[in-house]
Design a protein around this nucleic acid. Structure first.
Lengths: 231, 231
DNA sequence: TTTACAAATAGTCAATCTGACCATAATTTA
DNA sequence: TAAATTATGGTCAGATTGACTATTTGTAAA
């Protein structure tokens, strides 16, 4: 009943699970892996695993995500601890969950040692997952909706350069509403957070839109002078 | 080097610490206890301890807070996990921190078994604490400042019935700014979150102000129709 | 080469909200 | 009764919002 790979050097009462959101074709996806070993071998679940004694919890999360999916160098933020007594079968395991938003197209998925497969799944097509992973997903989605309208984190889901249309579609997908185009543009542009790229969209069969990028430094400066993002 | 009281039935790699904010005399306080046992016996620190195998993490937090300080029946929210490798001396301990806002005057402090004392300390007078507790406090204060301006949680720090002046002082203490009185009043009242109590302040040596209360149900209803709290 | 289309971008306007003020009302104590 | 203190009420210009309409720019079909 103990872990196979890290028996000697992991904390067995504590695990990590990662909830990674991606955005493709105007739809919101979640990153799942198929476990290659352990008690849920062969089942799809959130990427996760065990913390080693010689690594910080944050590092454990990055290491696990990379080794399971090939996704590396992203900002993982703590989401929440799930610590119900019977959430894990057979022994007491408390899990620390992490959360990230990435542009799915920028990362290729390479399932590692302990995963036999990894894929993006539309948020509305996620199957029944083991343990309390569906609960984690639900909590994380709620968190995403709240956070995305108070902080400019949505840009992480888009390519470096994006059109105003793309970001609007993103918000519509997350908030599950429709937004007025001219008003959305105006509000977003008036924040002065976006920098026009002097470059236009390509290969579209209509008037090409201007590309913009989000500038972290500008945001930081605005923050310091009391600005708060609201959409 | 193991825990004394719960050696047999606690998860020794995992602890809990509680960051409790209180508000008294227009100043923001933090709840500290003096440990009566363990490796930091005699020192002031955040209330905390070990998780038992047969209780959820959230329950452990409530139990520990109550047994150490006498404060019970409050809403504890998860703050963050602190999991650096060397944050605890001698062994690997990851801590889950909890966060709450209460009206200090409503709770009397009764240090329990494993605490020899408990007291409120002004946020600006907190001494050097053991482990990474100062870091936790700093993180939690930042969290408080952010959260208090996006969600109507500040009311938890006040008595059930309060004046507009009191809540303004509260916000000024947390945000460390001065606010324009008429504008603050207008903005808050226009949200329709507060219910006038048909009752006035007593024993003040000037014109008595009207008392208001915060109504959770109204807030919930407003939320459902798309309202977001911003101050 | 014109025309239909699709989407980007620009502008209008009334209603509301905000920030910086000034003014008045109600109490209490000197 | 006056002075002091705090509550409460208003004004006003400027900015922001939500609901629209209009125009521009480009592609693709006729």
């Amino acid at each position: 009943m103990r872990q196979v790979r890290f028996t000697e050097d992991t904390i067995d009462a504590l695990s990590i699970d990662c909830l990674i959101f991606g955005f493709r074709n105007s739809e919101l996806d979640v990153l799942l892996i198929k476990h290659a070993e352990g008690i849920i071998k062969g089942r799809w679940a959130l990427p996760g695993g065990w913390i080693q004694y010689n690594e910080s919890v944050d590092n454990a999360a990055s290491r696990l995500l990379t080794s399971l999916t090939g996704v590396s160098n992203i900002y993982l933020e703590q989401l929440r601890v799930f610590g119900e007594v019977n959430r894990y079968p057979g022994k007491r395991v408390i899990t620390i969950t992490y959360f990230a938003l990435i542009n799915a197209d920028n990362y290729s998925l390479n399932p590692g040692f302990t995963a036999s497969d990894a894929k993006w799944v539309n948020i509305h097509d996620v199957p029944r997952l083991p343990y309390d992973h569906n609960k984690i997903l639900q909590y994380g989605f709620k968190h995403l909706r709240h956070k995305v309208s108070h902080e400019p984190i949505g840009f992480n889901l888009l390519p470096k350069k994006f059109t105003l249309h793309q970001i609007q579609k993103l918000y519509e997908a997350i908030m599950e509403t429709e937004l007025d185009k001219p008003n959305f543009r105006r509000k977003l542009l008036n924040m002065n957070l976006l920098v026009p790229c002097d470059e236009k969209q390509r290969d579209v069969s209509h008037r090409a839109a201007n590309l913009y990028r989000f500038d972290k430094k500008i945001y930081k400066d605005l923050m310091e002078s009391g600005f708060t993002f609201e959409l």
